[in-house]
Design a protein around this nucleic acid. Structure first.
Lengths: 114, 114
DNA sequence: CTGTATCCTCGTTGATACTG
DNA sequence: CAGTATCAACGAGGATACAG
């Protein structure tokens, strides 16, 4: 963020959810109260361990995601949205709706050109 | 977009507005019916000519922005949102609101730690 | 099971100079 | 005024191996 950018609240909001896998991670957490590390991996097959870790650490630092470690062997870690993280729900829902409409818009454009 | 990503409508929507300057460009166009190239540069001092051109071309191809060239010397080009581009307004408004709330949330966190 | 550590690739952005 | 062209820098993301 710099100059104009940091003044723009839209950019502030975007910074919280941008990242190749962040919106996907958040959405899975909206549908699943808590998720373990490997559960997330299974839900997002294309993500690498490294990126999942990095994004989860980011989201944790941003107070969007909560990380709970159960001290046992084998290790068990549960991730879930914080109360604050859940305030993103309406925003993601709005994006989902617009994305849906956008796909239809693209379909219409394609048909007109054929 | 790939695998999970392309199925996610949120990602579809995000793809249309991510880009370092895209949200800012769009917002200026929401407040100004039409803007010329150099007017945008003045509104966004930190942007380079190159990036402004690239993002405008992107937005044009995405059917978000309309480009009108007046064949005269010196050249005059007017940019404006398309009717479709304006459908982004509620979404950006929602992001603006969330961004605002987020800044307050950060303030509260800072105070608690001091 | 839940991670770290390295190394590498590639795309986005920036700097700068030039043009019709 | 409204761009292009070229080159360089940087960082996000990916591949792979290793670890507690």
């Amino acid at each position: 963020m710099e100059e104009n950018a940091e003044m723009c609240k839209v950019v502030v909001a975007l910074d919280m959810i941008v990242g190749k896998w962040k919106p996907i991670i958040i959405q899975h957490m909206l549908f699943n109260e808590t998720l373990r590390f490997n559960e997330l991996r299974r839900l997002i097959p294309a993500i690498t361990q490294r990126m999942l870790t990095l994004h989860l650490r980011d989201l944790e630092e941003q107070d969007i995601v909560q990380r709970v470690v159960f001290p046992q062997i084998p290790p068990k870690v549960e991730y879930s949205l914080t109360k604050y993280g859940r305030t993103l729900e309406p925003l993601l829902a709005a994006m989902h709706q617009w994305g849906l409409a956008h796909l239809e818009h693209m379909e219409m454009k394609k048909k007109r050109h054929s």
